[in-house]
Nucleic acid binder design. Structure first.
Lengths: 210, 210
DNA sequence: GTCTATAAATTGATAGAC
DNA sequence: GTCTATCAATTTATAGAC
């Protein structure tokens, strides 16, 4: 009697289809990928493909939803290090999250959702909720804790502070990465950007040094 | 003997094709648009279409490049209002630019470039140069003027200041709009966001009130 | 350059046997 | 569920006449 949250009983063929399709969609986008290619990649016949999914759209939607779930699971929730000063803690947290956001897989997911979001709005909504909304929620909780502890004395609403931190964190690098213009991203580049964002937030809203 | 910079002598049919294709690509993305649909929209035969463009990709590329040029022309360069205090000037400038960035056409252009950028890198590069790089360059010049005038005393490199202002300006709204999740965007929403960004930059790097 | 008509390939999707 | 074989529609692209 397992209470496991892992999705139970998923057929191997279905799993192979989902994996192969995910790889193709992330790599080439939605349009250029044919059902033939998916079947070939999953080493499955097209009939089997259509036995599991009603069509290309349904397959795509399940891929995105599954990826969103994985995305949420990938970001460790508990990163609060209250031993550090506010700025250092923000910088560490920010570097970790930014590093995640810049992963090629996450950028690829973002790209295909942006591309097909206009056609399938509920898909864009699912991505936005699983991604930015969730992250901002966690940050908001953490900031509220810092404020309660007196290390943050914002004269602006906490949601605005959280949004500004994320905006600063993304910076220009996020834009470039989404466009596919950034090569491999160095860890120090990420850390530098996160530190700049943390410094700005700390100076804007941090408690004055006693 | 005109020295006009306007592109000279473009055939009416070619113009019609470019306009019809631009509208279709912005509305539906690259993949779903067929050459048949373009020909129909431009009220031109497919043979004519292929007489002007070697294929769908070439047509698309010319559309994007032309749109990038229009984009640059659309943003007035001279907005510097030195009569206002730094924060007010930044807010006004920011509201104007953000309003431009959030235009449905500009978001649509961004979307298709993101979608096809991985397939055609020079396209993403052209967009990035015509858009973010150009805007940041203008802001940098303006900030340098403010610094020379003593109204800005940044303890960070000016390029970082410019990047942070743009990041704050985009905020979450830009992300939502790119995903197609924002409905019609109110002018006051834009102004509020721009004011918050301007306030942050002014407090971080502005000269202390004498 | 421009058209009508069509070629040639690929697509998403299914029928029927096992 | 799974396969082989195939359909019907659509796609990009071109021949040939004007």
């Amino acid at each position: 009697m397992s209470l496991s949250l892992a999705p139970p009983e998923i057929s191997p063929k279905r799993r192979a289809i989902l994996d192969a399709a995910a790889e193709l969609f992330m790599k080439e986008g939605f349009g250029p990928v044919s059902m033939d290619a998916v079947a070939r990649g999953a080493q499955v016949s097209k009939a089997t493909l259509y036995a599991h999914f009603t069509g290309k759209d349904a397959l795509f939607q399940e891929i995105i939803e599954e990826s969103c779930q994985k995305m949420q699971a990938l970001v460790p929730q508990a990163l609060a290090n209250h031993a550090q000063p506010l700025e250092a803690a923000l910088a560490e947290l920010g570097a970790h999250w930014l590093g995640f956001l810049l992963r090629p897989r996450v950028r690829a997911l973002h790209r295909v959702v942006v591309a097909e979001g206009a056609r399938v709005p509920e898909l864009a909504q699912a991505f936005y909720t699983a991604g930015p909304v969730t992250l901002r929620g966690w940050l908001l909780d953490w900031l509220a804790g810092e404020a309660a502890r007196g290390r943050l004395q914002p004269d602006a609403p906490l949601p605005l502070v959280a949004e500004q931190f994320f905006s600063l964190l993304r910076g220009d690098l996020f834009l470039r990465a989404t466009l596919g213009l950034s090569g491999p991203i160095g860890e120090e580049e990420v850390r530098t950007l996160a530190e700049a964002a943390a410094r700005a937030i700390a100076r804007l809203y941090g408690a004055p040094p006693a």
